[in-house]
Simulated scan of single mutants.
Amino acid sequence: MTALYLHHSHPVWWQWVTHLFAHANLQHLSNNLFFLLVFGRFVEDTEGAGGVVAVYLLCGLGAGLASFLLSSRATVSVGASGAIFGLFATSVLLRLTSFNWRRLLESLVLGQFVVQQVLGEVKAQLGGGSLMAGGLKVSHLAHLGGALAGVLLVALLTRVPAPPNSAQLPP
């Protein structure tokens, strides 16, 4: 199983993806699945199922890259938490891209939770806190990297023009 983890000292190409699906223990998996269900559904509402998969993978890669670049080479990355933080950020920011009262209200409620989580990660990183999950140290850098990847992804998506509606195309 540890061959699926992203080993920063000697990463193998597939570990950049497989570490997003491997977890330290059942509780780690359960927590990530819960947040994937909740925040994945919010992303799915606006971007569809393919959007959830794309956001999850891109934010997970961003989380792994942040951890890889900013952590020691002795670090091992495992789990979906960084990708989940990307879903946190994406789900809130996508609701702010259109003026809809329901979505704005959802973004306020979700946004408070997301801001609280991100600030907690910043505080833990700056304070040197070392939470443990399944014998592995929690990577606050990966969580922050995933959230940043989600912010960058939404910023990029809002600049890309939408494809023309097929109903508007001439026959």
Rank of each mutant, 00 (worst) to 15 (best):
Q125N: 07
R73D: 00
Q117W: 08
L33G: 00
F35H: 05
S72R: 12
T75H: 06
P163W: 05
L131A: 09
F42G: 08
S130L: 06
L57H: 07
A74Y: 03
V138C: 01
L131G: 03
G146N: 05
V160M: 13
S71Q: 10
W14T: 01
V43S: 01
G150S: 07
L148M: 14
S67D: 12
S71D: 04
F88D: 05
W101M: 13
G51W: 08
A83M: 09
G135A: 03
P161G: 09
S107F: 02
M132W: 09
A3I: 09
V160H: 09
L148T: 15
A83Q: 08
L108Q: 08
R73C: 00
E121S: 12
L20P: 04
H140D: 07
L108R: 14
V43C: 06
G82V: 00
V122K: 05
F68P: 00
G145D: 00
V154K: 07
S77I: 12
A89G: 00
K123A: 09
V115W: 15
R41E: 04
G64A: 15
W16H: 06
A24R: 13
V138A: 01
L26P: 00
L157Q: 11
L169R: 15
H28G: 07
V115L: 15
H23K: 05
N165Q: 12
R102H: 09
V115D: 02
H23W: 13
S107E: 04
L57G: 14
A22W: 02
A162D: 09
A147K: 14
Q168M: 13
V114Y: 08
G40V: 02
Q117P: 02
L108K: 11
L4S: 03
D45V: 10
L57C: 14
F42N: 06
P170N: 06
G62L: 13
L169I: 10
F21S: 04
G135I: 02
P163M: 09
S139E: 02
A3G: 04
S139K: 13
V151I: 15
A63Y: 14
A54L: 15
P164S: 15
N100H: 13
L20F: 04
L57T: 11
E121F: 15
F39P: 01
L58D: 04
G146Y: 05
S9M: 03
A124I: 02
Q15L: 01
